[in-house]
């Protein structure tokens, strides 16, 4: 564990908590893509199956349990509890265009052809693109609430911080995982346009609005 890894995890944790607070306090999931949230739930379920086979640390287990619970909880809030506020007219990204290619890719490019390893690889590939329905929704409506943009900023920063962690680990531990690194870079690149808008607009107190 290094400082970048810890900062990345805390940023990921903050993103999820910001999203839950937004939904809970406003009793609404307006502006949030349910499809992205379903993809994140699939990501965590397929990645953290090793909770049952492999104990790493109390920290690791606690974070995995939290991510699993919160992602499933978010899907529950969006599709059941606050269903009426879910903006499904604007949430139209076809997730099969993400699920099928990432599933195929994980069957071809993996470290080992075993069920656990393929599911882990699938979750890494899927995570890298899981935010696309959300970004698509923001571009479709042309704006995002401030709290939604804080959520996106924290979520995007997390993988960026992991990249610094991987650079650190490569230099100081001689460890690298090419699948995680490439997917993590793709994931971070997808946020670049958003980061630019966040820094130039939201941090200056303006609402995130896309140029017409």
């Amino acid at each position: 564990m290094n400082i970048f890894r810890l900062a990345g995890d805390l940023s990921h944790l903050a993103a999820i908590i910001i999203l839950l607070i937004k939904i809970w306090k406003t009793r609404s999931c307006a502006g949030i893509s349910g499809r992205s949230q379903v993809l994140f739930a699939i990501v965590f379920i397929t990645r953290y199956l090793d909770l049952f086979t492999n104990f790493i640390s109390a920290y690791n287990t606690a974070m995995k349990v939290f991510f699993l619970g919160s992602s499933i909880g978010t899907v529950y809030l969006m599709y059941l509890k606050f269903k009426a506020t879910y903006d499904h007219n604007h949430d139209t990204f076809r997730i099969e265009f993400l699920l099928l290619p990432t599933a195929l890719l994980s069957l071809v490019l993996n470290h080992e052809f075993s069920v656990m390893e393929i599911l882990w690889t699938f979750s890494i590939y899927l995570e890298s693109v899981a935010i696309l329905p959300q970004l698509f929704m923001v571009s479709k409506t042309g704006e995002a609430e401030s709290i939604t943009s804080h959520y996106l900023f924290a979520l995007g920063s997390y993988r960026g911080l992991y990249i610094l962690n991987w650079i650190y680990r490569y230099y100081f531990e001689g460890f690298y995982d090419i699948i995680a690194i490439v997917a993590g870079c793709v994931q971070t690149i997808l946020y670049c346009d958003f980061f630019y808008l966040y820094i130039t607009k939201v941090l200056k107190g303006k609402k995130l609005q896309l140029p017409a």
Partner: peptide, 10 residues
């Protein structure tokens, strides 16, 4: 380093 069965990252 190829397979990493002990995946400590989240």
């Amino acid at each position: 380093k190829g397979t990493s069965t002990n995946k400590d990252e989240l």
